[in-house]
């Protein structure tokens, strides 16, 4: 996904001279090195100072630019919540935030580098759009779409390579969820790295899969249409079970068409080191087997 982000930024840089890239000393890690080489005067490594990066970007946006700020999700948005709240959102500043290495996708470094709270942090802010693409193809489309939409937006991407679940010809529009597999027995709503896993599980239980790549604003119509048919939902995300995509779905469903919902995600923990990414997914139950198990518990 981060490679796709880097490619999209290069493309955007060529398309629009107002696009700027900022990073807090993590340029290569978030794949902005290509943009930096191609457009050195539009690339700003602000040093290890994330809070100031948000203010700088807000000021640049107020002067008509479209700054993209990229870092690890633990720092951006993690470290800069108040700067994002006041200087970005209250100003409706046209700044795009990109949080990489989301969830467990930096397994080695452990809890300090694993962001399991960022969707919750961004989702609660007025004016903020929250996007969590399913794969590299969708990441690229999301980056281009963000640049064309005015206002603050947050893009959540992973460090690890992700199963390809969309195709280049699939339409992508911010705010639109897509049913990527039809089914009758249950609606599986997933975002980001978990969409691939949901698809595999759905094959075995006649599930319908919704790729909810925009978490805010929420595509209520697509979700409601599916649950009216299936009558039950499992949400799956690589994020805390509190405040994330599952919470967004549940808040809406419970008020508009109450059906049983199981929220699958990371329990109320900080994360931990592991040699392999898969070990963490296994430990916290973000697996095909666990989706099927939860389905059977309905």
């Amino acid at each position: 996904m981060r490679d796709a982000f880097g490619e999209a930024m290069l493309e955007l840089g060529k398309q629009n001279p107002k696009v700027l890239a900022l990073t807090a000393d993590l340029g290569p890690s978030v794949r902005l090195d290509g943009f930096a080489r191609e457009f050195p005067d539009r690339f700003f490594n602000v040093g290890v100072a994330e809070a100031n990066m948000i203010g700088l970007a807000a000021g640049m946006a107020l002067e008509g630019f479209i700054p993209f700020c990229a870092s690890f999700a633990v720092f951006l948005p993690g470290r800069c919540f108040d700067q994002i709240r006041v200087s970005l959102c209250q100003n409706k500043a046209n700044v795009k935030l990109v949080g990489s290495h989301c969830g467990f996708t930096n397994p080695g470094d452990g809890a300090s580098a694993q962001s399991v709270e960022d969707i919750a942090l961004m989702r609660v802010l007025p004016e903020m759009t929250v996007i969590c693409p399913a794969d590299a193809i969708e990441t690229k489309k999301a980056v281009l779409a963000m640049a064309h939409q005015n206002g603050p937006a947050y893009l959540r991407i992973s460090r690890t390579e992700t199963q390809v679940v969309t195709s280049k010809s699939d339409p992508f529009k911010i705010g639109e969820a897509r049913v990527i597999k039809q089914g009758k027995k249950i609606t599986l709503i997933a975002c980001g790295t978990m969409v691939g896993i949901a698809l595999q599980a759905a094959e075995k239980i006649d599930g319908e899969v919704i790729n909810l790549s925009t978490i805010k604003p929420l595509d209520k119509a697509t979700i409601l249409k599916s649950i009216r048919k299936t009558g039950r939902v499992i949400t799956i995300e690589e994020h805390s079970i509190y405040g994330g995509m599952g919470s967004a779905v549940t808040e809406m469903v419970s008020q508009q068409y109450p059906v049983p919902v199981k929220i699958m995600g990371i329990p109320d923990v900080f994360g931990e080191s592991a040699r392999e990414y898969q070990q963490l997914l296994d430990k916290y139950g973000l697996t095909v087997e666990n989706i099927i198990k939860n389905y059977k518990l309905f």
């Binding site: 700003f44 809070a51 100031n52 948000i54 203010g55 700088l56 970007a57 807000a58 000021g59 640049m60 946006a61 107020l62 002067e63 008509g64 630019f65 108040d82 700067q83 709240r85 006041v86 200087s87």
Partner: peptide, 15 residues
């Protein structure tokens, strides 16, 4: 919310 004005000002100045 203190501590943000100079950052935004610097962003404007740079822009």
């Amino acid at each position: 919310s203190l501590g943000q004005g100079l950052s935004v000002g610097a962003g404007m100045a740079l822009g």
